[in-house]
Computed example of a mutant assay.
Amino acid sequence: MTSTIATRPVDLLLVEDQPSDAELTLRALRALDLGTRLHRIKDGAEALDFVFGRAPYTDRSVEDAPGLILLDLKLPKVNGHEVLRALKSDDRTQQIPVIVLSSSGERSDVERCYALGANSYVVKPVDFDAFTQTVQRIGTYWLDLSEGAGPCPA
């Protein structure tokens, strides 16, 4: 996806550097047909620029924050832990639900993410069908069923 979508509202921001995982995730979410506007970012630095409306996303505002962020941990430039820390330490973005979707099942990663304010931590299943079902369950809950998902009004 290109940055031309950046000016439109985004319901879900996927921060994932692995093309195959990103494609599977987006395909699983699109299959739900929730009318969700999706955007993918490939590294942590760009994710922060997108959410906070910094170059090259100066046409966006932090008030246009996504309703949900799916965040990988092992990202280039700025890792997922640092992205999570930045989002949850800023009053303007701390209410955005952030789901860590990582291949790491290390207890230290899980504990650190929750300590930083992650709303959920999900280990990516290796099996294709299990991966698809997991992503769809996340999407259904956070984008369709959960009350009050997204940033709270100021």
Rank of each mutant, 00 (worst) to 15 (best):
Leu29Gln: 09
Thr132Glu: 15
Leu68Gly: 08
Asn119Ile: 01
Val10Thr: 15
Pro56Arg: 11
Gly139Ser: 08
Gln133Cys: 03
Tyr141Pro: 09
Ile99Val: 13
Gly80Lys: 01
Ala86Glu: 08
Leu145Asp: 15
Ser120Thr: 07
Leu116Ile: 04
Thr140Val: 04
Val100Pro: 01
Ala130Lys: 14
Glu23Val: 13
Asp43Gly: 08
Leu116Phe: 11
Val51Met: 09
Ser108Gly: 00
Asp43Arg: 08
Ala28Cys: 08
Gly117His: 01
Gly105Trp: 06
Pro76Arg: 04
Leu75Lys: 02
Trp142Met: 07
Leu38Lys: 06
Asp64Ser: 11
Leu34Phe: 14
Pro125Met: 05
Ser108Tyr: 08
Leu87Thr: 01
Leu145Tyr: 07
Phe131Gln: 05
Leu101His: 06
Thr134Cys: 10
Ser146Thr: 15
Ala28Tyr: 15
Val135Glu: 05
Ser61Tyr: 04
Pro66Leu: 09
Val62Asn: 11
Arg107Phe: 04
Ala31Ile: 00
Asp90Arg: 11
Leu87Asp: 00
Leu32Phe: 04
Leu116Asp: 01
Glu147Ile: 15
Arg37Thr: 11
Val135Thr: 09
Ser61Trp: 10
Ala115Glu: 05
Phe128Asn: 08
Leu87Tyr: 01
Val15Glu: 10
Ala154Gln: 15
Ser89Lys: 14
Glu106Pro: 02
Arg112Tyr: 00
Leu34Glu: 07
Thr140Met: 11
Gln18Asp: 14
Leu101Val: 04
Asp59Trp: 07
Arg112Ile: 02
Val100Lys: 10
Leu116Asn: 07
Met1Asp: 05
Tyr114Val: 02
Pro97Met: 00
Leu68Ala: 07
Gly35Gln: 12
Ala65Trp: 03
Pro9Leu: 08
Val123Cys: 06
Lys77Cys: 00
Ser20Ile: 13
Leu26Val: 14
Arg30Trp: 08
Asp49Ala: 13
Asp21Val: 00
Arg30Val: 08
Pro9Asp: 04
Thr4Lys: 08
Gln18Cys: 14
Thr4Tyr: 11
Tyr121Thr: 01
Pro76Trp: 06
Arg54Gly: 00
Arg107Ala: 12
Asp17Gly: 09
Leu29Tyr: 12
Asp90Glu: 09
Glu111Ala: 14
Asp11Trp: 03
Leu71Pro: 05
Ser103Tyr: 05
Gly67Pro: 02
Cys152Ile: 07
Pro19Tyr: 01
Ala47Tyr: 10
Gly148Glu: 10
Glu16Lys: 07
Ala22His: 05
Asp21Lys: 14
Pro56Cys: 07
Ser20Phe: 09
Leu26Pro: 10
Leu75Met: 02
Leu38Phe: 15
Tyr57Phe: 15
Leu38Ser: 07
Asp59Asn: 15
Leu70Ser: 03
Pro9His: 11
Phe52Lys: 10
Leu26Asn: 10
Ser102Val: 08
Asp90Tyr: 03
Leu38Thr: 09
Val100Gly: 00
Gly139His: 09
Asp109Val: 03
Leu145Thr: 15
Ile138Ser: 12
Leu87Trp: 03
Val122Met: 04
Ala130Arg: 12
Trp142Ser: 05
Pro125Tyr: 07
Pro66Phe: 05
Arg60Lys: 05
Val62Pro: 13
Tyr114Thr: 07
